[in-house]
């Protein structure tokens, strides 16, 4: 079975945000890294290959030329080859536009499973996996903490409100990773050296012939604003004082 592992080069969400006068992001603050939810999905793909359930892992990324770095990170963890759908507009593309591009890659590669993080920690849409499943007709197992392949099926344990839920999917399927799925490995030095020699194909999005307009994505980002800030309040010196404030000042007890 071939696995496609979708990865994203994301903005580090912990950077100190700075906006320009016209409500756009100040590019000088941006710092990029591999989306950490994708580390879990790449790890799961590598484990499936180690167990014999998968034969090849292809890492796929929509991003600028710089995203080759994130693809190499995934290759160093044990994936076999990479595909970069190269565009400088990646940060402005919405989930539907990306899912349509990835659906074309799926059509070309015909994987038995697509693995990806449940969300990207910068744009936080939590949508591309589900959309990709819809566009390809694949079954979907989202927010996975368990992914057990048995022949042509996969049982996915899902983190859901109020508990956990299992679904049984017939392959091919899209599985999106949550945090209890595994513990991602650190790439070893030999892994990093080997990754440099692994094949990495660069595709022009126009060549995928997807039904999209990169200049006018489905969702347009008009601008940004900072959320309201909370002020630090009072430090009390005892449990008694805390109870007093909650009863008499905040009136919540």
């Amino acid at each position: 079975m071939k696995i496609l592992a979708m990865v994203k080069r994301v903005v580090d969400p912990e950077v100190k945000v700075k906006l320009t006068g016209d409500a756009q992001l100040d590019p000088s603050i941006l710092d990029y890294k591999l989306n950490y939810f994708d580390e879990y999905s790449v790890e799961e793909a590598v484990r499936l290959k180690e167990s014999g359930a998968a034969s090849e892992i292809v890492v796929v990324c929509i991003g600028s030329g710089d995203a080759q770095k994130e693809i190499r990170t995934a290759l160093a963890m044990g994936a076999d080859r990479g595909i970069l759908v190269e565009t400088d507009e990646a940060d402005r593309l919405d989930s539907l536009t990306k899912a349509k591009l990835l659906a074309k890659v799926v059509e070309r590669e015909e994987p038995g499973m697509v693995l990806m993080g449940k969300l990207a920690v910068d744009s936080e849409s939590n949508a591309v996996g589900q959309m990709l499943a819809a566009l390809t007709g694949f079954a979907q197992g989202t927010f996975a903490f368990k992914c057990e392949v048995d022949g042509d099926t996969v049982t996915v344990g899902r983190e859901v409100d109020g508990g956990t839920s299992d679904v049984k999917l017939t392959l091919p399927a899209v599985v999106t990773a949550d945090l209890r799925l595994n513990e991602p490995r650190y790439a070893s030095l030999p892994g990093i050296m080997k990754a440099k020699k692994k094949p990495l194909e660069v595709i022009d999005p126009d060549d995928l012939d997807a039904d999209i307009d990169l200049d006018e994505p489905a969702i347009e980002i008009l601008g940004y604003e900072l959320p309201p800030q909370r002020e630090a309040g009072e430090i009390v010196d005892s449990v008694d004082a805390l109870i007093d404030r909650l009863k008499n000042k905040a009136k919540v007890l």
Partner: peptide
């Protein structure tokens, strides 16, 4: 919720609808 986040993007793709999360 985990339910809405699970099925609504799928609905969006089938309707060719832009998706706004959260």
């Amino acid at each position: 919720t985990t339910t809405g986040k699970d099925f609504l993007p799928r609905v969006a793709a089938l309707l060719d609808a832009g998706f706004v999360s959260d």
